[in-house]
Design a binder for these strands. Structure first.
Length: 271
DNA sequence: AAAAGCCCCTGGATGC
DNA sequence: TGCATCCAGGGGCTTT
């Protein structure tokens, strides 16, 4: 579900529909990861300026303050004038003059947090440590290389940590390292410029393609306006333990790194 | 400062 | 069919 492409596709699917809408009512269901941080009544009457994205966070800019929204592992948004009746996992709703924004999140790892402004502690706590945006021009080779240089941990885990580059989730981490021919357990600091260059290209390519094709469909992703993503991630390694590598037929291996599965081809990803 | 573990929660798949 | 176990796409927090 929500890796960077899904979050971006979701944003695009409702940003123009919600811009300039006035908040009429707020619904909070079961608690999410953190409390909203403001009495919901205080949001009523404020207007939604626009919706931005930073990493996997959506930022709803209000005329006073902002809402930071995260989809966690199982969250999805819908926006519309006539949404179906609320279900058991619909835990947050913003009813506006232009439609209702609804968060469905079975596992409730997601969050909606109010911050008075982007430099306020509530926002800095969540956004402060984020790395470069992979699809923006500031994701250049030198800075990426420098960022990896000062991390001795395994490159897979550095990608996931998001403090060097954001938006590379567990699936894309395995996939992009395969594309770049890099062993996931390799120390990030030890990667040479050529490999870092291949990794950077792989990250850009995969994420960009997924965004352009409407979000990857790791299961059944659909954006806030109900459109279904068409990008079938044809995994080269992810989820393919024991199956033949699509390039060299060697069985794909699975290892655990920081309580998460990593997949790689021992031959195509020598080091 | 960085790295390693832990944990939040529900549901689907699998195995007995 | 029922029940237990394992696993899941994230990431902040606490402990080393």
């Amino acid at each position: 579900m929500p890796e960077l492409p899904e979050v971006e596709v979701t944003r695009r699917s409702f940003v123009s529909a919600i811009e300039n809408a006035t908040i009429l009512d707020v619904y909070c269901g079961k608690p999410l990861r953190w409390p909203l941080g403001i009495a919901s009544a205080e949001l009523i009457g404020r207007r939604v300026r626009t919706v931005r994205r930073r990493g996997k966070y959506l930022l709803l800019d209000l005329d006073a303050g902002m809402l930071l929204l995260h989809l966690g592992m199982s969250g999805s948004l819908s926006f519309g004038g006539h949404l179906p009746a609320r279900g058991a996992h619909d835990h947050f709703e913003l009813r506006t003059s232009q439609g209702t924004l609804r968060l469905n999140d079975p596992r409730r790892f997601g969050a909606v947090v109010f911050a008075p402004h982007e430099d306020a502690p509530q926002a800095r706590k969540l956004l402060g440590g984020l790395g470069m945006e992979p699809l923006s021009p500031d994701f250049d080779l030198e800075r990426f290389h420098a960022g990896l240089k000062r991390r001795k941990a395994a490159v897979k885990q550095v990608l996931l940590a998001g403090d060097v580059v954001v938006g590379v989730g567990n699936i894309y981490a395995s996939e992009t390292l395969f594309m770049a021919g890099i062993r996931p357990t390799r120390s990030a600091a030890k990667l040479g410029l050529a490999r870092v260059g291949r990794l950077r290209a792989a990250i850009r390519e995969v994420l960009e393609r997924a965004v352009n094709q409407g979000g990857s469909t790791l299961r059944n992703f659909s954006s806030a306006n109900g459109e279904v993503g068409h990008f079938q991630l044809d995994a080269m390694v992810y989820g393919r333990e024991g199956q033949a590598c699509r390039l060299c037929t060697t069985p794909i291996r699975r290892v655990w790194q920081g309580q998460r599965a990593t997949y790689f081809c021992p031959v195509c990803q020598k080091n």
